[in-house]
Amino acid sequence: MSGETNLLGDYVRARRELVTPEQAGIPVTGVRRVPGLRREEVAMLAGISADYYMRLEQGRDRNPSVQVLESLARVLRLDDDATAYLLRLGTDRPRRRTRRPRREAIPPGIAKLVATLPLPAYVEGRYFDVLAANALATALSPRLVAGGNRLRDVFLDPAEQALYPDWEDAGGGMVAGFRESVGTDTDDPRVIELVGELSLASPRFSRLWARHDVVACEGAPKRIHHPQVGALRLNRERLGVGGAEGQTLVVYHPDPGTDSAEKLALLASMTALDVAR
């Protein structure tokens, strides 16, 4: 294969290993030597030949039809995000890749907006780097500073993990969101560097990355245990930055009139005093 990556084959193999025969409606008899579904079972359920499916998985056929891909998505129980990712893998054609800059620049107007927002806010790049953060975001989480990386923070820093009671559950979503963010550019030098570092340092990241889960990162409630103001429940919103591909403005805000709103206001007052000194 001339050293080419086999993204499509790797993906469908990883996903078939996560589907149980029971989920697929296949009776189980005797001892099975493989996790999940066998190749021939996937082929049968998708309505394609076992030989053709094997060639797809091994990377010897890289031109499946959309109909075949959609059939595989159904058999592999993929949701909408994962199906879209599978279609990209199967329809994107090899292209000459160029090195992406290691540093992403945010639009000046967005930098000013982040600095003046009265809520914790930061800008995240396509590699989950923190490109800018306001003082209240840093007060909420000391790792939210320009130059940090959210994957490194969450998977490698015990202090950051202590802030988020649900960090282990959230970690799966982060890894799936990162795979969705980089798409088919898994041979991007920065992606290789980051995934390699995290895989060596964090067995949990390594296991999650091997699952090939894909999901678009969306806003969601977050629980935070802050050492100064205590337990917080904040809504995290993620807004795409226009004119800056792959960049996201992340803002935390409480529900009005809640205990969390009072605690965040207290943290904002403490932060303002620190900045004024």
Score class of each variant (00 low, 15 high):
8 L>S: 14
10 D>W: 00
13 R>D: 14
19 V>G: 00
19 V>M: 02
22 E>M: 09
28 V>C: 02
32 R>E: 04
35 P>A: 02
38 R>M: 06
38 R>W: 06
40 E>N: 06
41 E>Q: 08
46 A>D: 10
48 I>F: 10
50 A>L: 08
53 Y>Q: 09
56 L>A: 01
61 D>T: 10
63 N>S: 08
66 V>C: 04
70 E>S: 12
72 L>H: 12
75 V>N: 03
88 R>A: 14
92 D>Y: 02
97 R>D: 14
100 R>T: 15
104 E>G: 01
108 P>T: 07
109 G>M: 05
119 L>G: 13
121 A>E: 07
121 A>N: 09
126 R>E: 06
128 F>S: 08
134 N>L: 10
135 A>Q: 11
138 T>W: 02
139 A>Q: 00
139 A>Y: 00
151 L>V: 14
153 D>W: 06
154 V>H: 10
155 F>H: 09
161 Q>F: 02
172 G>W: 07
177 G>F: 02
183 G>H: 04
185 D>G: 12
188 D>H: 05
189 P>Q: 01
191 V>R: 04
195 V>T: 14
198 L>A: 10
198 L>Y: 09
199 S>Y: 06
200 L>G: 14
200 L>W: 03
200 L>S: 10
202 S>L: 06
210 A>H: 07
211 R>K: 13
213 D>P: 15
215 V>Q: 11
226 H>L: 07
226 H>E: 09
234 L>M: 04
235 N>A: 11
245 E>L: 01
249 L>K: 09
252 Y>D: 13
253 H>S: 15
254 P>C: 05
255 D>M: 00
271 T>R: 05
272 A>Q: 12
273 L>F: 06
276 A>F: 05
